[in-house]
């Protein structure tokens, strides 16, 4: 990448209590670029996202090392006031749980407008006008009289649209979307993804799109990072990754995609489970589940190679 990255995570290590959950995680996102972060549930995607926003609950979350450079400043070194100025203004975030992520006792108009009041110093009525525009933007029709509705009056998909409106209220440079569609109906999933895709272009934002669905990645992302047990194991431009997956874990993930299998048949899944942190040896953590593991895999940790196609494997495809 020639351009200065908007976000650069460098060698980030995080522990939850005594358990290390992120180890030596590095990736970059250029302005306007969309990076997909994929991996099985529990591999550390949400922890990564929350770390960038410095929203990890502490305790148990602890930063053990690394840097998170947003627009050149290290998020880990910022004081709380500087951090607040970035959160919600220059980085927006949407979460996996639309049903519980909105405050049940305030109207959606209030919750969207709040960012504008806090960051843009708008008064109530200016915020209201702007909020109505935002609701239009995220595709909630007849926006004006929707402002006074409460979250419990909306469907899951509509709530996620409201979350998107909140995240985008201040036109952030970066949107972090942590499995934004996982909790939604299949038909609604596509609508929400379309919306994010469209707004990304309209607003020229960079997006960190977290998902465990490779199909979503293929459709939306410029580049993909694959995570396994707290480490990035492979990273490449999407087209390259799908055409030429090299890590055995990535390969296995691709085989579990619906498109890779005859319709009507039960999807295959990767056999075995992620070993608990206590049971991990010195080598590649995937070795225990890998059909192509060689002796070296369980003794030495493979290093991550350089871009454009980064890889952490001793015996790649």
């Amino acid at each position: 990448m020639s351009e200065a990255p908007l976000l650069a995570v460098e060698n980030l290590s995080v522990a939850m209590g005594a358990t290390p959950v992120l180890e030596d995680v590095s990736f970059q996102i250029a302005p306007g670029e969309t990076l997909g972060l994929v991996g099985e549930s529990g591999c550390g995607k949400s922890v990564t996202a929350l770390s960038v926003m410095r929203l990890l609950p502490n305790p148990p979350g602890k930063f053990l090392g690394g840097r998170i450079l947003f627009d050149g400043t290290d998020m880990l070194s910022l004081d709380i006031a500087a951090l607040r100025a970035i959160r919600g203004d220059r980085i927006g975030m949407i979460f996996q749980e639309p049903m519980t992520s909105l405050n049940p006792v305030y109207t959606i108009g209030d919750q969207i407008g709040e960012s504008l009041i806090v960051h843009r110093g708008m008064n109530g009525s200016a915020a209201r006008t702007e909020t109505a525009k935002l609701l239009d933007l995220v595709g909630i029709p007849a926006a004006r009289n929707q402002l006074d509705r409460y979250p419990h009056e909306l469907s899951g998909g509509q709530r996620q649209r409201v979350m998107i409106a909140i995240a985008l209220a201040c036109r952030p440079k970066l949107l972090i979307a942590d499995e934004p569609t996982t909790a939604l109906d299949v038909t609604v999933q596509a609508q929400i993804l379309d919306l994010i895709g469209r707004l990304r272009v309209e607003l020229g934002m960079a997006v960190l799109l977290i998902t465990h669905d490779l199909g979503v990645v293929a459709e939306f992302c410029d580049r993909v990072a694959v995570m396994y047990a707290g480490r990035i194991v492979e990273e490449a431009p999407s087209a390259e990754l799908f055409r030429n997956p090299r890590h055995r874990y990535t390969e296995a993930l691709l085989h579990t995609m619906p498109a890779a299998n005859p319709p009507g048949r039960k999807l295959p899944s990767i056999s075995g489970t992620v070993p608990a942190p206590a049971d991990r040896g010195a080598g590649c953590i995937f070795a225990a589940r890998c059909r192509f593991a060689i002796p070296r895999c369980s003794t030495d940790l493979p290093p991550l190679t350089e871009p454009p196609h980064r890889l952490r494997c001793w015996n790649p495809a």
Binding site: R84, A85, T100, L102, N103, S115, I166
Partner: peptide
Amino acid sequence: TQDYIRTAHSKGLSAVRVVAKHAMRN
């Protein structure tokens, strides 16, 4: 510990505002 408190923090609200507005009413 509720999710909407995390949302409130993600909007860049002050700790006082998060507690006094978003937590207390609930």
